[in-house]
């Protein structure tokens, strides 16, 4: 249902919105950040669709540690959300539930209206393949593959052919500003370039949401800032993004902040400081 061409191409292309959902008009990207999610709140415009919804979601790990407790959270199309909180507060746990990498021990997680608990492993994997892109602090690039092939891996489980995967990977790398690094192996790239490669891999499948777990955590401040700027650009082109960060300043610059402490959502601040 995701028409490939619906995705905005190069930076600077300000076509509005994420891929259109049938029967629903996509909200212009410019209005999406900070959208309060109140139906009818925007002069008759329908609110942007809910991408991920958590209702009373909790996670208790074997051994009894409750890493997330009764979390309610809705992320809508076009949003750029920061998830902040001290180390060990449950941010990654939250992100893993949002990304269907883990199932909640209580409560409910929905992706585009589908209750994760009702989906088989195959279905859930297809959901991750098509709808969710992940960016990790440690990049997780294969050292033996070129940047291009690493990014193409993001389409592997879509069942499309090798050459088509590489074409789209080249586009994605161009979009993150690495069009000149296609054939470089990860060890030939700087840390920032590696993370941008990983981001290209996350967005190459044109997912409905990108989940990034401390993407700048392993980077120096300059390349970290570049990565953040890239996430902003992608968001401006319509990609919905949730990003975990330690960086207060960075978090404060984003339109919406979800603060976690000891496994509980303390604050969901949609005031939206303009970036």
């Amino acid at each position: 249902m995701t028409a490939p061409d619906a995705y905005p191409g190069a930076a600077g292309d300000r076509r509005p919105g994420p891929p259109a959902i049938p029967g629903q008009a996509a909200a212009p990207a410019s209005t999406a950040p900070g959208f309060p999610g109140v139906p009818g709140g925007h002069g008759g415009l329908e609110p942007p669709g809910e991408v991920i919804t958590l209702q009373g979601a909790g996670k208790t790990y074997p051994g009894g540690l409750t890493a997330l407790d009764n979390a309610d959270l809705t992320i809508r199309e076009g949003e750029l959300v920061a998830i902040v909180g001290p180390s060990g507060s449950g941010k990654s746990t939250l992100l893993n539930l949002m990304g269907t990498l883990d199932r909640p021990s209580s409560g409910r997680v929905e992706v585009l209206g589908h209750d994760v608990a009702t989906l088989s492993d195959r279905r859930l994997s297809a959901v991750r393949a098509r709808w969710i892109g992940f960016v990790f602090q440690q990049f997780f690039l294969s050292p033996h593959l070129s940047a291009l092939d690493n990014v193409a891996t993001g389409l592997l489980y879509h069942g499309i052919g090798h050459s088509r995967r590489r074409e789209r990977a080249a586009e994605a790398l161009t979009r993150v500003g690495l069009g000149h690094r296609l054939d470089h192996k990860p060890h030939e790239l700087s840390g920032g370039e590696r993370q941008r490669t990983a981001i290209a891999r996350a967005v190459v499948s044109r997912p409905r949401i990108v989940l990034a777990d401390e993407p700048t955590g392993a980077l120096d401040s300059t390349s970290g800032a570049a990565v953040v700027q890239l996430l902003r650009d992608l968001n401006a082109q319509g990609t919905t993004i949730a990003v975990i960060t330690h960086d207060r300043q960075l978090a404060d610059s984003l339109p919406r902040r979800v603060r976690i402490l000891d496994g509980r959502i303390q604050e969901d601040d949609m005031a939206g400081t303009a970036a």
């Binding site: 589908h114 279905r123 709808w131 090798h162």
Partner: peptide, 22 residues
Amino acid sequence: MTARSEKLPTPARLRPRDVLAV
């Protein structure tokens, strides 16, 4: 709760060539 839910993506099969490559 949300009335609007999108059609689930269908799980894709890897092509034999990709199975081998992987």
